[in-house]
């Protein structure tokens, strides 16, 4: 056993670090993530039935999920659910909402401007930034493409 080189240490660490129990996590994230998406779809169909425009319906669905996730975060139960759900609550828009609200509540003690105001973006900021950046790159390519009539 070599405990004096990084390779030896890494090997020891790898051998002794337990892996996540993927099976159970996988099922839970599938069920909870699926339930959020399925519930969203049911809401979308309902919205379409009551005459909401086709384009607006998914936006309302997202807003509903954002609101529910924010309220659950406020009540302090979102993290308990997420502990089981893992990607099931992270991947839907609920994860985005939780990141915003949890960070805001957490930074409260540091004041409204530099606490809440600045830190509210610390997890959702990258999502917005890189989403917009990717969108602008796509837009530039699309604009060039249509300008040349491709």
């Amino acid at each position: 056993m070599d405990i004096y080189t990084n390779e030896g240490k890494k090997k020891l660490i790898k051998e002794n670090t337990p892996r996540s129990t993927l099976g159970k996590n996988l099922v839970k994230s599938f069920l909870i993530g699926g339930a959020i998406s399925g519930g969203g779809e049911a809401l979308r169909i309902l919205l379409l039935k009551i005459g909401v425009a086709e384009k607006q319906a998914p936006v309302y669905v997202s807003l509903t999920i954002v609101s529910i996730a924010a309220v659950l975060t406020l009540l302090g139960v979102f993290d308990s659910i997420a502990r089981h759900a893992g990607a099931g609550t992270l991947v839907p828009i609920s994860g985005f909402s939780n990141a915003v609200t949890s960070q805001a509540i957490d930074a409260k003690s540091e004041g409204l401007v530099l606490g809440v105001g600045a830190k509210i973006f610390s997890i959702c900021g990258p999502v917005i930034l890189f989403g917009l950046a990717a969108g602008v790159i796509y837009g530039a390519i699309y604009y060039i493409a249509i300008s040349f009539g491709w």
């Binding site: 599938f30 993530g33 699926g34 998406s37 779809e41 169909i45 990607a87 099931g88 991947v91």
Partner: peptide, 22 residues
């Protein structure tokens, strides 16, 4: 529609779960 949404949404989450764990 709901079942399809459930299955696809769940599948995306499960796929990401693999990435998180692995």
């Amino acid at each position: 529609d709901i079942i399809l949404a459930f299955l696809f949404g769940g599948a995306v989450c499960a796929a990401v779960q693999i990435f998180i764990d692995k």
